[in-house]
């Protein structure tokens, strides 16, 4: 099988650790590749063998069902052998350090390592210690690049473009890696991004990331094309960033009335899992006309296939491995 090693305008890196610093054409390359995989996922025969014989490990230090499953499916549909390692089943519980785990996995000659970790920067640290491609599946409050890519793919397929769209990202921006990756991606692609949250859930200096800040949800939602809700992370609210869920929903939950201020064809997005009645009203979340939440999940598999495929292609030893 003969394939080009790289193309001039494609995604050029060995790993996908974050969106920050990527050029628009590099992002577009991944989205274009993902578009092609959407059809494969919708056909009866979903599995190809382009990467047969390759192996991939999902190393999840934080619990996750949908992201892990999505990566697993993506890997399998490309023909890779996929192994899941959760915290409970691995030697992480026995006190092995991140770097020791990396060294151990490295000795197993993996091609792709997908990592989720509770600490910002942990995935980058791991990537410095292994020879295989590393995909960040979420690190602390830092980045969740495949989520931003799948969100962008969802929007692009619905709206036809990303530039000049008005996107509102609402909720717990402070702790959200999804918000950060989306801000980097959408601003890079020419969208206008607003963040909407109470002051306690806005990270310091967020304006420097090129977004407009709103603390009044009604003002923030006015005439937007996309309403992107963030999950309120109950487990991280211990420092009482908000007085109560009831009060939060009153001012920052998405309901029909607030949604009416957005453009009539505005799309509703949520990275899941949703807290119904906390950040989003069930009625809105299930609105088939407006909510693209299920589509996001579908795009997730395609985006991850594109990322895995591209990273394996970019591996310095690809030619040897394929021979």
């Amino acid at each position: 099988m003969i394939r080009a090693m790289t193309d001039d305008y494609g995604y050029p890196h060995r790993h996908l650790l974050g969106i920050q610093g990527l050029y628009p054409w590099q992002i577009k390359d991944l989205l274009d590749r993902a578009d092609a995989y959407v059809d494969q996922c919708r056909s009866a025969e979903k599995k190809s063998d382009v990467l047969r014989g390759r192996s991939m490990v999902n190393l999840f230090y934080e619990s996750s069902t949908r992201t892990r499953t999505s990566f697993e499916l993506a890997g399998k549909r490309l023909g890779l052998d996929v192994i899941n390692m959760g915290v409970s089943s691995s030697s992480v519980n026995k006190g092995e350090t991140l770097i020791d785990t990396a060294v151990t996995l490295n000795a197993m000659h993996l091609d792709v390592l997908v990592v989720r970790h509770g600490d910002s920067g942990a995935v980058q640290l791991l990537s410095e210690k292994v020879n295989c491609a590393v995909v960040n599946a979420g690190d602390g409050s830092h980045e969740h690049p495949t989520q931003a890519l799948l969100d962008a793919l969802t929007i692009r397929r619905r709206k036809g473009h990303l530039d000049n769209l008005h996107v509102a990202i609402c909720g717990d921006v402070l702790h959200s890696r999804v918000a950060r990756s989306n801000i980097y991606l959408l601003t890079a692609m020419g969208a206008r991004v607003r963040v909407i949250a109470p002051r306690t859930l806005l990270p310091s200096g967020i304006e420097e990331l090129g977004v407009e800040v709103f603390t009044d949800m009604r003002a923030g939602l006015k005439d937007v094309d996309i309403v992107m809700m963030l999950r309120v992370q109950n487990e991280r609210m211990a420092g009482s960033y908000i007085p109560s869920i009831r009060e939060f929903f009153h001012f920052f939950g998405l309901d029909r009335e607030k949604l009416a201020l957005a453009k009539p064809d505005a799309l509703i997005m949520h990275p899941g899992p949703m807290n119904r009645g906390v950040e989003i009203d069930s009625d809105v979340a299930d609105d088939i006309e407006r909510s693209v939440i299920r589509e996001q999940v579908e795009m997730g598999v395609a985006v991850r296939m594109a990322v895995i495929d591209k990273l394996v292609l970019n591996a310095p030893n690809f030619a040897n491995g394929a021979a």
Binding site: S120, D139, G140, P203, S204, G205, E208
Partner: peptide
């Protein structure tokens, strides 16, 4: 240090 650099790195800041 607290501020936009901490926000970019996803790290909690010391104001």
């Amino acid at each position: 240090n607290g501020g936009d650099h901490a926000t970019r790195l996803g790290l909690s800041g010391i104001p």
